[in-house]
Write a protein that binds this DNA or RNA. Sequence first.
DNA 1: GTATGGATGTTCT
DNA 2: GAACATCCATACT
Length: 203
Amino acid sequence: MPAERPIAIRPLARAELPSGAAALARWLLGKTLVRQRQDGRISGRIVETEAYVSGDASGHAFKGKTARNASLFLERGHAYVYFIYGCWFSLNISAGRAGVGTGVLLRALEPLEGFDLMVRRRPGAKLSDIARGPGRLATALGITRELDGLDLCTGRGALWLGDAVRPAGRLRRSTRIGISRETTRLLRFYEEGSPFVSGPRGR
DNA sequence: GTATGGATGTTCT
DNA sequence: GAACATCCATACT
């Protein structure tokens, strides 16, 4: 809901982030993503993530480092933004040591601040749909390639990670969505019962 | 409520 | 030329 004043959000330091995509993906649930724009601040609780682990055939880093996926090979806590299906951006967070190539896809947010700013980019969307799904999340927050490679552990700037403002609920896991390889691995994590999670009612 | 298919651009074969 | 970590409108039950 739109807050009159900014919520107090404590920035996360890199040392706090677990290393490894699966560990980071679980740990990020309940944490806060903050998008600072000219016209104000957008923030949300992370309620759904997917891990793309090292050596994972469905991960973009699988075939090695290229110009496109270079940000996945940065030390954990950096943004990897890519363009997909000709229409959408997706936001990932690198999860390993420098040079490894692993990350966490952010799939859905529960809005905390800046709902009006999100609606401006996704006219007509309901609160519960505004950042439900990776493409919608990126659109609602105005995330584009410009943010690719950004360090999210600075506590300031255009995009950064903050601590949970409310503890994460019960954690659930499932197979990942929208991939054609390594489809049986349980590397999608989400908060149980959250209406802000993508997919048909849990899974 | 679910199912289907089109749109769109970048990357890599 | 194909595949792609998706979304939305439309057409159904």
